[in-house]
Every structure is written in structure tokens, then in C-alpha cells.
Amino acid sequence: MKKTKSFSYAKYGYLFSIPFVVAYLIFSLYPTINTVVLGFTDAKGMAGLTNWHFLPFEDLFKNFTTVLNAPTFRKSLVNTMILWILNFIPQISLALLLTAWFTSKRNELRGQGFFKVVFYMPNIITAASIAILFKALFAYPVGPVNSLLTNLGLTDEAINFTTMVWPTRGIIAFIQFWMWYGNTMIVLVSGVLGINPDLYEAAELDGATSSQMFWKITMPNLKTILLYTLITSMIGGLNMYDIPKLFNDGNPANSTMTTNVFIYKQAFSGSYLYARAAAASVIMFIIIAILSVLVFMMFQDSDKKMERAAKRAAKRAAKKEVG
């Protein structure tokens, strides 16, 4: 009986996926395949996108080896990882902390509606405006941060931040953190709002404390959303482009050049190395895919367990209502 039921509804799975698939096929597939194909060609120069040839068979992966052997690409890969880790760890920690505070039933903070709205606000300004603002903040030899530091007596001479590797990385990671923690927080909060309220009610009746409820109910039920956050943040982080490009053009000494900035520069900064840029894009795709699979595997077990737990809980709740 169960079998026939799930079989008869299967067609709706296909049916409801059609709009997505059609839109994807029309608008995204062609450019994507185009990119992959270009990676195996000699496309270069302004007319490179229309006039190219496949590389000879023995050299088919030449663009890939060139990119992988380029010191700048390797460096940009390291930079990307550094910048992502520097911004993601504080970002997810703060977002989780705020989520715990803002969804706690016991310890209601006043004005949390205001805070939730305000914390997201940096995310609605364009990266270009943000980059200009921070450039001005850290201007040398006179600028707000420098005058603050000298007034506080922390330094005697103005600091030329953008010529120094780690300060520039720090600033960029901070901007990313600051722009996105509110976004992550909202995602997590909405995840908590989706948790069946009966679970909390039951726990409350059992006399559970705030932190017990957070760790025993919120966190397990939030796992699927946490997985989403981790995956999207990783994809976003490894594709980081705007801020490193606009803040200091990947400098000093290419220390903030991310892989996407490098891809962009190959493709559009004079030589139009489309084939190599495409190869670099494919390499990045493979790296991201491998990392994503790893993260998924890490979450797999708990994911399944949690799904079952949620269903059980829902069943209980449904019973309660009926009864």
C-alpha cells in the first residue's frame, strides 16, 4: 500500500521541477557549457569568443596545466582560503550567538526586532559603495582611522595599511564579515522559526533552561539550515570577488587577489585569455564541488537522524492535537 502511494505521486516531483529545469536550460546551461568548452580551446584575444579552435589532442589540458602551474593562481587560491576562513569563523560564531539570544524564550532581549533589522543593513549597500567607504576610512597619510590611532597615542606615524599584507587582508575579511553576519543570522533565525513550536512548549513544561533548549532542540533542528549556511558561505567565499577587487585590486603584492579576481583579470584586463580563464573557472568548480561533498558527508549522518527525529516529533504533536 505504501509503495503504490509513493509511486502514484512521483509524477508531481517531475512536474513541479519543470519550471526550474526549463529556465535553467534556457538561461544558464549554454553559458556554462560554453565556459567548460572554452577551457579546451585556444580562445584568446578580443575575437576569441567567436573565433577559436580546439587544442590538439595531446595538448588538450594545456590551459589547465598552465593555470595550475601559475604562481599567481596558487597564491590566489591560498589568499581565497585565508580570506574565507578569516571572515567565516567570526561570522558564523557571531550569527549563532545572536540567533541564540534572539530566539530564546526565557531571556527575551528588548529591541531585538530593531537589532535584527539593523544588523542586516550592511548587506543592502552595494559592494562598490562599501569599498569606497573603507578606502576612505583607512586612507593614508591622513584618514579617520589613522587620526584616531595617533590621537589615542597608539602609533606615532600614520600607518599605510594598504601597502601591508596582513592589515589589508584583515580589513577585507572584516568587511566581508561585517557585510554578511546579519544575513547569516537572518537565515539561522528563520530556520529556528521553522522549528515546530510544540517542541519548545513540551520542553518548557519539562522545565528545561534556555541553554538546554538551545542545545537540545534548536541546534539539532537547525542542522539542515546550518548545512545550507556552510555550503553557501563556502561557495560564496571561494567565489569572493567584489571587495578584494574594489578595495585594493587584489594588492598589495597580489596578497588579496582571490581566484575570482584572477579569473577576471585573465579574461578582461588586456589579453583576453578566455581559454585560461575558463580553465581556471572549471578548476575552481571542481575544488568547490569536492569541498562541498566533504561537508555533505560530514553532515550526512546527523542529517538523516534529525529528519527522523523531526518526523517523530511532528507525529507526536499531531497526535496531541487530534487527541
Binding site: S17, F20, Y24, F27, S28, Y30, P31, T32, N34, T35, L38, L49, I231, T232, I235, N239, Y241, T259, N260, I263, Y264, A267, Y274, A277, A278, S281, M284, F285, I288, A289, S292
Partner: peptide, 23 residues
């Protein structure tokens, strides 16, 4: 299908945007 959706998410958009424009 779910794997495909995830894969699509991972494609760097820098280069594909030009293909989209040309199309």
C-alpha cells in the same frame, strides 16, 4: 536533480556572465 542544483550554485559567475550576454 538535487546534486545538479548544488552544482549549478558552485559555478563561478565571472566568465559565464559574458556568455549570457552574448546569448
Amino acid at each position: 536533480f538535487f546534486a545538479l542544483i548544488l552544482a549549478v550554485m558552485m559555478i563561478p559567475a565571472t566568465v559565464t556572465s559574458i556568455g549570457f550576454y552574448q546569448f
